[in-house]
């Protein structure tokens, strides 16, 4: 899995998003220890302080738990993981409606298109 960073937004935010996706996709499964800040920073080719900020944001959301003895592990709390998954899904759905609106479709029409696609 590659790290992809674009130009327009803060790097730590993009790192946070990609780490979140890695957790939800099972790349880092529940209960597993994450690599250290420096390892992750080196892997992504970014400043360790920037990576630290992204990881601290994951801690704040409860996706990861930092423990002095075991380091940073992915939460086993299904509710937290599910909540985050639903949150990301909402974003994707909103994006879909927005893009459809740009093409001139109402929400109902967009939904109809989606259903039709599903039946193919």
């Amino acid at each position: 899995m590659d790290w992809r960073l674009d130009d327009s937004r803060p790097i730590w935010l993009q790192l946070q998003e990609q780490l979140t996706r890695r957790i939800l996709s099972g790349h880092y499964p529940p209960g597993e220890k994450l690599p250290t800040v420096r390892e992750l920073a080196a892997e992504a080719g970014v400043n360790p302080n920037t990576m630290q900020r992204a990881l601290a944001a994951l801690d704040a959301e409860g996706l990861t738990i930092t423990n002095r003895t075991t380091g940073r592990v992915v939460t086993k709390d299904e509710a937290v993981l599910e909540g985050m998954r639903a949150c990301l899904a909402r974003g994707i759905i909103e994006q879909f409606y927005e893009s459809a609106a740009e093409l001139g479709y109402t929400k109902e029409q967009a939904l109809e298109l989606l259903k039709r696609r599903q039946n193919l």
Partner: peptide
């Protein structure tokens, strides 16, 4: 850098 990107909505470059 990240504050600058946030404020200016573009890369440092």
């Amino acid at each position: 850098v990240d504050n600058l990107r946030e404020k200016e909505r573009k890369s440092v470059d």
